[in-house]
Design a protein around this nucleic acid. Sequence first.
DNA 1: TATTGTTATACTCTATAACTATA
DNA 2: TATAGTTATAGAGTATAACAATA
Lengths: 148, 148
Amino acid sequence: MPDRTLQELHSTAPNPVEDLLGYHIRRASAVILSDLNLSLGEIGLTVTEATVLMFIESRDGITQSELGRHLSIKRANMAPLTANLTRRGLVDRSQADGRSQLLRLTTEGQIAARETRSRVTQHDRKLCSTLSQKQRQALIQQLETIWR
Amino acid sequence: MPDRTLQELHSTAPNPVEDLLGYHIRRASAVILSDLNLSLGEIGLTVTEATVLMFIESRDGITQSELGRHLSIKRANMAPLTANLTRRGLVDRSQADGRSQLLRLTTEGQIAARETRSRVTQHDRKLCSTLSQKQRQALIQQLETIWR
DNA sequence: TATTGTTATACTCTATAACTATA
DNA sequence: TATAGTTATAGAGTATAACAATA
């Protein structure tokens, strides 16, 4: 029998976090965020801004708070986000009623959104390159049950 | 045939990020981080601090920079982290040579590390509750290929 | 020369509280 | 009363640059 410590007999992990699913999700998320921010940084966007842009693209006229609810971004953090995109000429805001803001992409915003989608899908394709379509779907479904 | 827009014919997703693996990993990571920070906050630790504590526990006398390399935490960010844990009496630092710091848990740190491990493993068990052991291993392996 | 540790600093994302205005 | 939006502020995590001391 090989020379092993008691701890090693109880765990196959070379370190105390290797066996934790949460740890690997966190690490994967960090790498993904970093990589994608590198690509999106070339067009002056963060991942968060890109997600917002893509969402508005597909839901023209969505309100700010509704968008925030979909992405779990709080009102207080949503405000400067859209204000910034508006200031940069990518998003157009108009009143729905006295409270709500309708969000739409400007022409420039539409161009940015297309480029964004291209970069994001390319990045995600690389991410899934080692997975079969079936594996990918299963993986997404498992992750979705975690956060939803 | 049901009334569907062109976009819906091309994508089964109700929103433009639903189909992205990276999106779901990010969302899952955020929820995990938030939940675990809630539990660890009760004993005055963040997830990052807890990870560091657990790592030192299993690698008594590891150097600060080595620890940083394992967790991908930069030197510049490692310094205040360990300084803080030392100040709070959980970690003990001693010179290895003129440069390196050997990190060890104090008695108080060992107690905290045990409690930390208990809370972290409990959290992770809940996370994996819907998965079989085989699914869990496969999931971890897939995530590991992404970040490593 | 490369490595270790430290400090200063900036940026992103997130969280809460307080406020105005509107439904 | 509940909702929408805003502002201010704080905290956690990460990134770079610059520096001193040591291998």
